[in-house]
Design a protein around this nucleic acid. Structure first.
Length: 940
RNA sequence: GGGCCCGUGGCGGAAUUGGCAGACGCAGCGGCCUUAAAAGCCGCAGCUCCAUAGGAGCGUGUGGGUUCGAGUCCCACCGGGCCCA
């Protein structure tokens, strides 16, 4: 600033912007001051049972944000929207007297830091720590009421030792389907020892008594194999998604259209021995548990379809000439009379048999050619072009079990080997894909289900009445779909043609990765091929340092940790195996795989309850207090609808069964915040133009003058429409930022960011400030006597804001506060008492300015810890109300009546209102509809 | 291909869940203040038409239906988004 300006300012103070106007610099001072105060006074530290000052009568409220993965790029304005919402709820509940647990931490293992390490050689721990520090700094500028004393990262050793411990719990357990819960594996061993359970030569477990029990004849290694086959964490051969480029296997969920979700590299399928979780054992409970959750409907639907329970039947068709049977799974056994052909997947063993010993009329060349071309197509491609079906006849037939008719067998790639038995019975009358196939190859169609009346669908796939459905062996004619299903299953079971079966889409969860930056498994491979756990007092198994992060890019999956031979090859004693299990000098090999990024997020919310506990993953008292009914409110993105939320539920159920947790569901209420999108500009040919190359007012491209259309897109670097919250806070302050994001629209809707709109929220705070503060000297300006209308409106605003916060409808709560401030400005100000109450309802939204206003009032204590103000019901309603009068649904006049006027009074008043009298022209109305307190509709 | 959600002024959105469509904010226009500008304050503001005040008609993606009354419920279609294949 130049000298002359200063002189002029000093001489003519009225020309100068007032020194105590609410602007960015003042907001920054206010925000720094109160953030420091909150920290110094530990205002948001949640008290645990046993802590000094803990009051058991205070209701607990656990509000959780999905913790972020701290990326090197820092926060953009989309990140905080959920955190602002949860902070408002937390501050509100705190003011209502709850003991609020509102923690924050870091999901810090994962691929990006490791890939950065591959490029730069910088240890992922270093990169991650830097990113964490930056995220923390950015988040703290918002004034969130987190209890930072509970902060941790999943890479901290005293956190991941318990992640490893929980994995060992799973490894040490099995699922008892008789009682539907997980139990310690030692109890299974004991039952086998006592002969309560028996095991046959194939290793199958039964609880039928009287079976010959071979358990006690087994070698120790064989016993251990039997137990291993029942553990909830087990080593199994599975077809995996192998990504040579990333040097790791990926979960199905991490593969999108045959490419890796991260990095978009090709993924192929191959069998591999991997650590798995037996999540399928919990499938029924994971499904049933959804019924009691207060979750968004769309997420419940997604989890339901992911688990994918389908009731149906396995049916058996005798293969002619070859012998043996072709087994299929179908959800519609009632359509058995509609089967006109069979289809097997190209990988089906029958195809190989046919090629080995072809029958007459079998074109082996065509079959081989077809199988070869389909082999390279992904499941996605195979399912996608449903319109253009391909396939080849196998030249064999099967016998229809109910009619005895021969049915041709085809091979086609729309049938997948991975689902059911890799074979289907085709019912072209009632399945769209089968119909398309039948039409393509001229196969016949039987209609066997009559749709409900009014439906005219040549390929009805819904329920109906069975028609054309009888033979000497089976008659289901006239039955409903449900009856027919039951009848066919009953018939099939009696005649050994099949049995009823529930099939699941969910598969066991692949839980090992060949990457470096993850939790090591706390288990070693003994010389006898048996696994030995690292005993819990030797946890964590620390991740060793390595020099070279580059994965071996080859066809043979090798874990990165396999390179650290000195760490891999050790002794039982060195690794921490219980000497009672294995002599300390026994050479052992450590497990070289690491856990996937999901591991820490499966239980981090449990650790927040008791983050510094050295003896347990959570203390029993803290767990019972905070998690008796799960997390009260969980806010996070809908992109985690299936994976994270399903995995966390699985761990929670397992730990519950084993007696470590009170509740069996982790998250009672779930809320998904919407995405913050951005405006982007599109040329006529739909190509996108970066925002900084566009004249936004004229809607033209700067370089060419060509017109562009404004569209809504995700924020992205390439469009240069990413907004950094640091800049917005510097320009307007954190309170304005918080208000703006909450005022944009409903929290669960996706909404476009528009920097221009922020000024509205900023001006609201300026008006609020000016309403009660002298902009020249900063002193408080309040009136002595309250304005009657303002007082009435204040009661309504308190009521509305409180109700809206409960509904997470922050946008309308803020609109109500703006209306209040505008009305109070017009009415000439507030009393000190009114300002006190208003600052308290403003506090959850704009906590810093609220504290500042409270301190100007010289009231004791922090606004953040003050009680939520009361309102008087009597002040919410007026004595008289105006009611619109409609004639045939159009408003034609209004009357003012007492709020509690009865129907007759309102009718009389309405019919004597001049404009209504006019319109009726002396005739009696045919009908008068009075909705008390709302509207009158007159039908002439 | 399937599932779920959503289409309201120039823009973001509101609407007590079937009862006055467009709250509140942005942008816009007019006025006050100012030498001027910014800021601020006061006011106008869905569209079309007639018009001096004022009035009439049309309006929540399109078409139909239910209802005294539909942005809201039902059916079909069009468009967009998300998720899953």
């Amino acid at each position: 600033m130049s000298d002359s300006n200063q002189i002029q300012s000093a001489c003519t103070p009225s020309k100068r912007a007032p020194t105590h106007r609410y602007r960015a610099a003042l907001a920054a001072r206010i925000e720094a001051r109160w953030q420091a105060t909150w920290e110094a006074e530990k205002a948001f530290a949640a008290l645990n049972p046993g802590d000094e000052g803990f009051d058991a009568s205070t209701p607990p409220f656990y509000c959780l944000d999905m913790f972020p993965y701290p990326s090197g790029a820092g926060l953009h304005v989309g990140h905080p929207i959920g955190y602002i919402g949860s902070d408002i709820i937390c501050r509100f509940r705190r003011m209502q007297g709850d003991n609020v647990l509102h923690p924050m931490g870091w999901d810090a293992f994962g691929l990006p830091a490791e890939q950065y390490a591959i490029m730069t050689g910088v240890h992922p721990r270093e990169t991650t720590q830097k990113a964490i520090n930056n995220f923390r700094r950015q988040l703290q500028r918002f004034g969130f009421s987190y209890d930072w004393s509970r902060e941790f990262a999943t890479i901290d050793e005293d956190f991941y030792q318990w992640t490893q411990w929980i994995w060992l719990q799973a490894w040490s357990s099995w699922y008892d389907h008789r009682v539907e819960r997980a139990r310690p594996i030692t109890e299974l061993a004991a039952a086998l020892e006592r002969g309560e359970a028996t095991v046959d030569k194939q290793g199958h477990l039964t609880w039928e008594t009287g079976e010959p029990n071979i358990w006690n004849d087994l070698s120790d290694a064989a016993k251990s194999t039997v137990l291993d086959n029942h553990r909830l964490a087990y080593l199994g051969e599975q077809i995996v998604n192998w990504c040579p480029k990333l040097g790791t296997v990926l979960a199905n969920e991490e593969v999108i259209n045959g490419r890796s979700e991260r990095g978009d590299h090709p993924v192929t399928r191959r069998p591999l021995c991997q650590w798995l979780f037996r999540i399928t054992a919990f499938a029924d409970r994971l499904l049933d548990g959804l019924k009691n959750l207060d979750w968004p409907e769309s997420t419940l639907i997604q989890q339901t379809s992911w688990i994918g329970r389908s009731e149906g039947a396995d049916l058996r068709f005798a293969i002619n000439d070859f012998g043996g049977t072709l087994d299929v799974f179908t959800t519609r056994p009632d359509t058995i009379f509609g089967v006109t052909f069979m289809v097997v997947a190209p990988e089906h063993p029958l195809v190989e048999s046919v090629l080995k010993s072809p029958t007459n009329g079998c074109d082996t060349d065509a079959i081989r050619a077809y199988v070869d071309t389909t082999r390279n197509r992904s499941d996605v491609e195979r399912m996608a072009d449903s319109k253009d079906k391909t396939g080849v006849s196998l030249g064999v037939t099967v016998t229809h079990p109910a009619t005895g008719e021969p049915l041709p067998v085809w091979v086609a790639d729309y049938v997948l080997m991975g689902y059911g038995h890799g074979a289907i019975m085709a019912v072209p009358g009632h399945d769209a894909r089968d119909q398309a196939f039948a039409q393509r190859f001229g196969l016949s169609t039987n209609t066997v289900v009559s749709p409900p009346s009014g439906v005219d669908d040549p390929c009805w796939s819904g329920d109906g009445i069975a028609i054309n459905s009888s033979s000497d062996a089976l008659n289901i004619e006239g039955m409903t779909t449900a009856e027919a299903k039951a009848a066919v299953i009953h018939w099939a079971e009696l005649g050994a043609h099949g049995c009823g079966r529930t099939s699941w889409r969910i598969r066991d969860w692949l839980f090992s990765r060949q990457r470096y930056w993850g939790e090591p498994f706390p288990i070693v491979h003994g010389p006898d091929g048996v696994h030995y756990p690292v005993s819990s007092e030797h946890l964590p198994v620390s991740l060793p340092d390595i020099d070279d992060y580059e994965p071996a890019e080859n066809e043979d999956p090798t874990p990165l940790l396999g390179k650290v031979t000195a760490w891999i090859n050790t002794t039982a004693g060195e690794a921490g195996v219980d000497p009672a299990l294995l002599a300390p000098d026994t050479p052992v090999r450590r497990e070289a795989n690491t856990m996937p990024g999901w591991a820490g997020s499966c239980w981090y919310f449990i650790r927040y309850c008791d983050p510094h506990n050295k003896d347990a993953f959570v203390g029993a008292d803290a767990e019972k207090y905070w998690l008796a009914d799960g997390v009260d409110l969980y806010i996070g993105g809908a992109e985690h609808a299936v994976l994270h939320l399903l995995y966390a539920r699985f761990w929670h159920m397992m730990l519950h069964d084993l007696g470590h947790l009170t509740s069996d569901e982790p998250f009672r209420r779930l809320f998904h915040q919407g995405l913050i999108t951005s405006f982007a500009y599109q040329r006529e040919d739909k190509s996108l133009v970066p925002v900084d190359e566009v004249d936004e007012d004229a809607s033209t491209e700067l370089a060419t003058g060509e017109p562009v259309n404004r569209i809504i897109a995700k924020m992205s670097k390439s469009l240069r429409n990413v907004v950094n919250p640091d800049e917005i806070i510097a320009e307007f302050g954190a309170d304005t930022f918080r208000l703006y994001e909450m005022y944009m629209g409903p929290l669960d809707a996706s909404k476009p960011w528009n920097t221009r709109d922020i000024t509205g929220s900023f001006r609201f705070l300026q008006r609020t400030w000016r309403l009660v503060v002298d902009e020249q000297d900063g002193s408080l300006l309040v009136r002595e006597q309250p304005d009657e209308d303002v007082e009435r409106l204040l009661h309504r605003t308190i009521c509305k804001v409180g109700a809206d916060i409960d509904k997470l409808a922050f946008n309308t709560a803020i609109a109500a506060m703006i209306e209040f401030v505008n009305a109070a400005t017009q009415a000439g100000g507030l009393t000190a008492d009114q300002l006190d109450r208003f600052s308290r309802i403003l506090c959850p939204f704009a906590p810093h300015i609220a504290e500042e206003l409270r301190s100007l009032l010289e009231l004791d204590g922090l606004c953040a810890l003050a009680a939520w103000p009361d309102y008087d019901d009597a002040m919410l309603h007026d004595d008289t109300i105006e009611i619109p009068l409609q004639v045939k649904g159009k408003v034609r006049g209004r009357i003012t009546v007492a709020a509690d006027a009865d129907e007759a009074t309102v009718t009389a008043a309405a019919l004597s209102e001049p404009s209504i009298v006019d319109l009726l022209g002396g005739d009696e109305p045919r009908k008068v509809i009075v909705i008390p307190g709302k509207i009158v509709n007159i039908i002439p």
